[in-house]
Design a binder for these strands. Structure first.
Lengths: 278, 278
DNA sequence: TCAAAAGTGTTCAGCATACACCCATGG
DNA sequence: CCATGGGTGTATGCTGAACACTTTTGA
């Protein structure tokens, strides 16, 4: 079979093709945006002002239009720009937001309206401005500890009172739990932590990120040495910390930018816990 | 707002809801099934007997019907049962196949027919029977080295001649490359290798799996010690290898089953390569 | 002067690696 | 008896974790 003949018959096939022969369903993109505010890991949520799930927290998202030339990652970036206030900040800031696909959620009745396949994206950003009110309700950065998700608290902070009693819409609790676990894991073997701080940053700021995401204190001096020893994780820049001096004194810290490594060798492992097997 | 009032208004909303207000697109599930045959990592492919992409290799897959109560993972299991010959093998074998979501591919024109969102699943199985001819063409287990994917060969086996010149349909080359990289990575920190061997297995068989997937020889005695030292990776069973004796002599090896660990601590790291940073 | 945080030195235990070696088995 | 592969012992070098300590700053 020649290539031309194949192309021709493919064209003939497509001319006679009827899209409605295939089952139409809806596809949307939901974005789980994480940042750190006041040393707490926060997720961007919208309090829905309409049905379904009116009054619940929901992840920002949008449907994928069949005619939209954007691929899902581009849709996610668009959602993020509209819902975080990132549309107002500089392009440089926008470019530093890390976006990656988390997973796709398509159970039969996860949305009461119709069959909806949701492609979830995970975004990591340094402290961003307060979000604007979006098309579907009021947006806010919510500390993950206030969501009362057992998967997130992990038997650790169970004494912590859930500050928000609002429920999460659809299956978004599961998406959030999956995303946070992904973030915790990727801190270990990628330079993801650098995505949560503004450059240039100090090693102490970076350590604070790790402590916030993992939810446990780290050994400061060993962390310091480890970060500097991993090739490509950070690169030193001239000057020392000036604006962000220590609240009650202490030496001015050196400043760094993220390096060019994409994978960390060796990894920055979180402290081993007792329930080691699993 | 009381819960009842909210429920009532949600019901009223849904009664007035028209699904066609939302943009219909198609969603499908593609399965990247990996196994090891003759010490080579192989992927299940179908030679398409129809347009589009007639004559190309394609991953087995199926569309998700909006009325289908199955979630995407169940669709993937169904696809696998239909296309691998797993429908003929015992339920015990079927239950031991590991299935996980790989990622979702939804670029605008990845399928010439219409906008199709493809949810890719990754399946790992011990050596399975030859596949049957499916609805869309002849299925076969194809060694990944014959696909000529640079991402897979990784500058290592470039001398190896690509045995198959057939092209891959749609964006399936990308899906395969992503899936193989996922498999290589997960060998390190999960008991995934055990999914590729029939139980009970010997440490040598397990080592052969690692060597096939990583594409490089391992130090036999250190591997042996390491496997036994990782808690929960394998558990010993009574008896020694009888049927699968060494071709040219050697002691009979002890037999093991996979343990109950889900994550390996410490991990089984692949040998460090020179291009360490990336 | 004191508290807090940055950063360095040092020790020690555990692990990965390499190599030597013995054993069991089938040809 | 010899090649092959299973399995154990052991020395070595590196890394992570812990601890002590000095330095730098602001209150």
């Amino acid at each position: 079979m020649s290539n031309e003949a194949q192309t021709q018959s493919e064209e003939a096939y497509l001319a006679s093709y009827n899209p409605l022969d295939y089952p139409p369903i809806a596809a949307c993109v939901d974005v789980l945006a994480l940042t750190i505010r006041d040393r707490k890991l926060c997720v961007l949520l919208i309090e829905r002002d309409r049905q379904p799930a009116k009054g619940c927290w929901a992840l920002p998202g949008g449907f994928i239009n069949a005619d939209d030339p954007a691929d899902p990652a581009e849709v996610a970036a668009r959602v993020l720009a509209l819902k975080t206030g990132l549309g107002r900040v500089s392009k440089a800031t926008f470019g530093r937001v890390h976006l990656e696909q988390l997973g796709t959620y398509g159970a039969a009745h996860r949305d009461p309206r119709m069959r909806v396949i949701s492609i979830a994206y995970l975004a990591f950003a340094p402290d961003l401005p307060d979000p604007e009110t979006g098309d579907y309700g009021v947006a806010a950065w919510v500390p993950v500890t206030e969501l009362g998700l057992p998967e997130v608290l992990g038997d650790r902070d169970v004494t912590q009172a859930p500050g928000t009693s609002k429920k999460l819409a659809f299956d978004h609790a599961q998406i959030i739990a999956d995303g946070i676990e992904r973030a915790r894991s990727k801190l270990e073997y990628t330079p993801l932590g650098c995505a949560f701080v503004n450059e240039p940053f100090t090693v102490g700021e970076l350590r604070s990120v790790y402590e916030s995401v993992w939810g446990e204190p780290l050994h400061a001096s060993n962390f310091h040495r480890k970060v500097l020893s991993v090739p490509g994780l950070v690169t030193a820049v001239e000057g020392k910390d000036s604006t962000r001096a220590n609240p009650r004194g202490g030496p001015k810290a050196r400043l760094y930018r993220r390096g060019d490594a994409r994978l960390l060798h060796p990894a920055l492992l979180r402290p081993a816990r007792e329930d080691d097997i699993r």
